[in-house]
Simulated assay, not measured.
Amino acid sequence: MNDEDLLRYSRQIMLPEIDIEGQKTLLDTTILLIGIGGLGSPSALYLAAAGIGHLILADFDQVELSNLQRQIIHSTDDIGKDKVTSAKETLLTINPNIKITTLTNLSEDNIDEWVQKANIVLDGTDNFDTRFKINQSCVINKTPLVSAAVIRFEGQLSVFKGYEKNQPCYQCLYPATNNSDENCVDNGILAPVAGMLGTMQALQALKVILNLGEQLTGKLMIVNALDMTFRTLTLNKDSNCPICK
């Protein structure tokens, strides 16, 4: 790290749990963020600011006016741009010293290639089929997965390491059958709820990378923003799970 880095990250470095070595670890880390929407926007902003050395941003969509209510990484001038392009431009204004790779063609055919490049994956997508594919790739490639979901006034957050013997994967929580996709397009969402969960998703990623404190591995946090309650449930590995059994 140079003098500019020491000043930029000084408030983190002064934390004894992080120090210079921890900051170096962050600078050497690659994170794959899948979905640069309501969850991915705050996650990416905080991870870039915290000094994650390489962010891989994956999203095939373009910025629309209706996104701006909650997808805070984009602005009105970005309408019509690829979300990954808009996000990259914003992130580099915050931290021009990090590397950012953009993907608009992440698919079942190449997801393993990109997961293998990452130390950790953040899933900010909004449909089960995509989440299942991300989870499967993370289990196969033994990569931690931080998964979040938001709708209306509610959110969920968990860390999955289904490749470990006694740890569940995402599909242990949600079997592939009998799932109906609910999303904010059809049901709505209060903007700060996405901000809360996306920020907590970034926090969990940093804690996993640095092995800090209590993590949500094998646990599910459920947030109700209307009454401001946080519940944490223990998740068990499904012995019949087709992905991580």
Rank of each mutant, 00 (worst) to 15 (best):
K165P: 07
F132T: 11
N105D: 15
K24G: 04
Q136K: 15
K219E: 15
E89R: 13
L210N: 12
V185F: 13
R70Y: 14
D28E: 15
S180D: 15
Q215H: 09
E154W: 06
L26C: 03
L26Q: 07
T102A: 01
N105R: 07
G35Q: 00
L57Q: 13
E154G: 04
D126V: 05
P175F: 05
L92P: 12
G188L: 08
T90W: 00
T217G: 03
T85P: 02
D3P: 08
N166Y: 07
T177C: 02
S43R: 03
F128I: 11
V185N: 14
T177M: 08
E17M: 05
L216A: 04
G124K: 06
L220S: 07
P242S: 02
T30A: 06
I56M: 14
T30N: 05
G124Y: 12
V185R: 04
N141L: 12
T232E: 15
V185G: 14
E113K: 09
G40E: 07
V159L: 05
S66L: 07
M196C: 11
Q156N: 06
D238V: 03
Q215I: 15
D77A: 13
L33Y: 06
N179C: 13
A87V: 05
F60G: 01
I34D: 09
Y46A: 00
L33C: 05
I98P: 02
V63T: 11
N110K: 00
R152K: 13
R231M: 09
S66V: 08
D82T: 05
D238H: 12
A176D: 14
K133A: 10
G124F: 08
Q69M: 10
K133R: 10
I209E: 07
Y163I: 08
K81T: 01
K161D: 03
Y163M: 05
G218Q: 08
N2P: 09
C184N: 09
E21Q: 15
H74Q: 09
D186C: 00
K142A: 13
P168I: 08
K81H: 10
L32P: 04
T143Y: 05
I140L: 05
S137R: 00
G37I: 10
L7V: 14
D129N: 13
T93S: 11
N240Y: 14
L216E: 05
I243C: 10
D5P: 00
V223R: 03
S75Y: 14
D181S: 04
T229W: 01
L27G: 13
S147I: 02
L210Q: 11
D5S: 12
T177W: 01
V84L: 07
G35P: 05
G38N: 10
D77H: 04
E182Y: 14
N119Y: 12
D28T: 06
T217Q: 12
I134M: 13
I73C: 01
T104A: 01
A87W: 10
I151Q: 06
A194N: 06
R70P: 11
L6C: 03
